[in-house]
Write a protein that binds this DNA or RNA. Structure first.
Lengths: 152, 152
DNA sequence: CATAATTATTTCAAATTTGAACAATTCAAA
DNA sequence: TTTGAATTGTTCAAATTTGAAATAATTATG
């Protein structure tokens, strides 16, 4: 950390956290994305399938909040999944502005097939840390993420 | 974590680490990016200024490795910084394929002005964790990131 | 009830990023 | 040497993402 040693102890520590968070995330993300591509899906497509597969049908807006992406982007992602016949748009019964997205049977089959494989891969990557460190890391990251989201 | 409780203890734990890493990173990144925009720079532009400001002139290729982005992208980022008069391209003396990028005086002045401000902001964000947790988190993230990069 | 403000989604243009193709250069081995 | 493989940076096309309208529907307020 030679590059971040000139701003006082507190700031150096904070910069170090941020740098390490970025490196760990980017490296992990590239590997995960690569694995997802091998299933013929993009990362965002996979994330949508995962949300729908685990939590059931939900509206476009809820999907946006879950993945923290813009609405314009989500429309495109859903368009592409729809073209592949993996999801379908159903007008919401309660709110006629809203559209419910759900897996088609084909989408459900694909999800059931590839999600466990991808989960195995994630576990392989994560296993570079022993389990007790994984627990600690998840706990700290959760605290950081939720507190930031709540406070800023 | 209702959505990730059906694949066995080890896999659930790994998925949890990955989900929390993603949330913490994306949330932090959006806030940091927003702050950088307030200085009239994009995130990648700021990162290049930071590398050059802290470590001195370096080639395009080294910048790519530091920021983990593609060469095509780095060319555009440097083009834009050059248009603003913040960096300049110098043909490398040792390797005539390579081009050294360095800050102009204007770039150096901007860097000296805004980096401490941004560092303060990062410290404000990070301060949602007490210092001993920051130390622990940085340590775990470093281990995760470096081991992944070395092993996969 | 009527009007305004908010919310959900889509459309569109612009910015960003990647990856492949390419030109120039370096390096290593025959 | 010199041939060929690898590396450096750029260009280009395509994919991705965002953010700002635009549209439609709902909710709140007077």
């Amino acid at each position: 950390m030679r590059s971040t040693k000139r701003y006082g102890k507190k700031i150096d520590l904070a910069l170090n956290v941020w740098v390490k968070l970025t490196r760990a995330y980017v490296t992990f993300h590239k590997l995960s994305e690569e694995n997802i591509r091998s299933f013929g899906l993009t990362g965002p497509q996979f994330s949508v399938l995962e949300s729908l597969g685990h939590l059931g049908p939900m509206t476009t807006g809820v999907l946006c909040k879950k993945q923290l992406v813009s609405g314009g982007n989500m429309t495109v992602v859903i368009d592409n999944l729809e073209k592949e016949g993996l999801v379908e748009r159903i007008p919401s019964t309660e709110d006629r502005r809203a559209i419910t997205i759900r897996l088609t049977p084909k989408g459900k089959r694909l999800f059931d097939e590839i999600f466990p494989q991808h989960a195995e891969y994630i576990a392989k990557l994560t296993s570079v840390l022993p389990e007790e460190e994984q627990v600690k890391l998840a706990e700290l990251l959760k605290k950081l993420g939720t507190t930031l989201a709540a406070r800023f």
